[in-house]
Amino acid sequence: MRIAHYVNQFFAGVGGEEEAGTRPELRRETVGPGKRLQALLGEEHEIVATIFCGDDHAAGHPEFAADLVARAQDEGVELVIAGPAFTSGRYGLACARVVTAAAEAGLPALAAMHGDNPGVGEIEGIPVVASGETARTMRDSLDRFAEAVKKVAGGEELTPEDGRVNPVPRRNRVADHSAAQRAVALLLARLGGDEEATEIPLPRFDQVEPAAPVDDPEQIVVALLTEGGFVPVGNPDRLESSRASKWVRYSLEGHDSAAAEEFESVHGGFSTQWANEDPNRILPLDVARELESEGAIGGLHNEYFTTTGNGTTVADARRFGVEWGADLHQASVQAAILTAT
């Protein structure tokens, strides 16, 4: 298959941030990571063109993508691939635009980037295969990318087993057996001890290693955390009411209770009427202060963290968790109480 490979200006060898305004360009050769990719693809598939653009130009001029795809089609390209973009946001977004433009032009397409790259969320129905977080993982990322390219070029659906990070689109097809027969077959499988058999796989979540218990709560600093969209009245940092892309932190110094005139919930997933009557219903600050003054806990961390856990992606939530853990660890906080709505 004839392939066009999209990279940004950095991986095209044009330059770094100072060249991020580079205009879209096509070269009839492999460039940068495309060289190794070609070696991995063997002789069956040929990268006949490298298409590239500066990250800033790509971000500010969405039409660059259709332009590049049209130029690639002039070269007889049959498949468009983009990346790996790792966790680089603008590069990931550019890859998303290129593969989307390719699909709109009727070409199969494939992108490679880390699952946390915001570009993943910009791609619908087109496979995205995982890469590492940074270019240090280039070798492994290209190995996986090449395997995925071969599969997509062969007309096969890319699945999570191949490292696909975005959902496999559901497509209607005629099954070999009727629903009744399949249901009985699944029931028999279950009775036979197969707990996994299903036609509708649910998303899998990480296994969380439980932290060791604290020896003595009276000796430790405890933090309060919440996903209840819990902010000072007026929401000064504009925390989102759903699909939060960030978390925020606020001081608890001088607060003995979460007063209604000082705090509110902006969570969009439930009625905040009760939370806003008495914000201690979301962040139990009044009782935490009591426990602190009685010595039942060594101390209360002087700030709380919050986000809105409504429609938040697992990737974002994982990132928030890692950042909260690192931050609290740094502050010598030994336990955290997280309220969830």
Partner: peptide, 30 residues
């Protein structure tokens, strides 16, 4: 909508409920 509350209770009882939840949280942490 109210992880550490219960609007059906009176203010004192609700406070006691919240206290019980946090004491149980400390027990869980230990």
């Amino acid at each position: 909508p109210y992880p550490t509350g219960d609007p059906d209770l009176g203010p004192d009882q609700e406070h006691a409920w919240r206290r019980e939840l946090l004491e149980r949280a400390l027990h869980a942490l230990s």
